[in-house]
Design a protein around this nucleic acid. Structure first.
Lengths: 124, 124
DNA sequence: TATAGTGTAATAGTAGAATAGAACACTAGG
DNA sequence: CCTAGTGTTCTATTCTACTATTACACTATA
């Protein structure tokens, strides 16, 4: 896996797993790959995986069963809340950053629209 | 100054200075505060300031004059390009992140609009 | 020419992230 | 009961960001 060295790997692993949860690759109640397998897949150490999972267990995002494995919570409401929270965090950050670059509210929206339009022409 | 411990301080200092350049607090050709003063203002070590400035000097964003000080480049085209680049970087990142959370192009734009609208009602 | 203000560089030490490796605890199935 | 698969924990080590401190190089000016 590709990592941005500007941000801790364990943090990026959390986002990676969130991604799979939100896209349905990891449905509610699903069993995650074994920590040692995850470590291999992500080309990362087991302890780093464990650190990421540890935080997600604290959050209630996943549930750990010793000897069995780690499982996505079956609480779909919890997952929906999590998604909303993650989206808002992203929006807050980009808004703050673009505002700091002196873009007005309208300019922020417009520039995003333009970016997506141009992107649509070139890719996908 | 407030720092996010998920990203290197020297990196956040660069953004801080970019911010002041884009908002005109640091106009083209303007002299930056002395590195030791910046260190005090940002409650950070001189070497950390120097690391941030060093990268900006490499970029051509600021110019260093030994014994005199550091100055914002007078090349306004360069500054405009930099701003465009920084904006696009932010857009790319938020697009990728929200896309990873399974939001469609339209949902991304809509959610940003909603966020800004709600924000406008509560703040400022 | 002396001094204060500036950028630059080097050293040494601290803390946190990440790694490697081993050991321990629990579960399921033969 | 044994074994394989699982999560959990611990120690030691490496690397990088950051800090603290000092010294050096250059500029302007009194």
């Amino acid at each position: 896996m590709q990592f941005d060295d500007k941000v801790p790997i364990y943090y990026q692993i959390k986002n990676h797993i969130y991604h799979e949860m939100m896209t349905g690759q990891l449905a509610a109640g699903a069993k995650l790959p074994a920590v040692r397998q995850l470590a291999v897949d992500l080309t990362v150490n087991v302890n780093t995986v464990q650190r990421a999972l540890g935080e997600m267990i604290q959050e209630g995002t996943i549930e750990s069963q010793r000897g069995k494995g780690n499982f996505v919570t079956t609480d779909t409401t919890r997952i929906a809340q999590l998604k909303e929270q993650l989206v808002v965090e992203q929006l807050e950050r980009v808004y703050q950053q673009l505002h700091a670059l002196n873009l007005s509210d309208d300019e922020i929206i417009t520039s995003l629209k333009q970016y997506i339009e141009q992107r649509g022409q070139q890719h996908d």
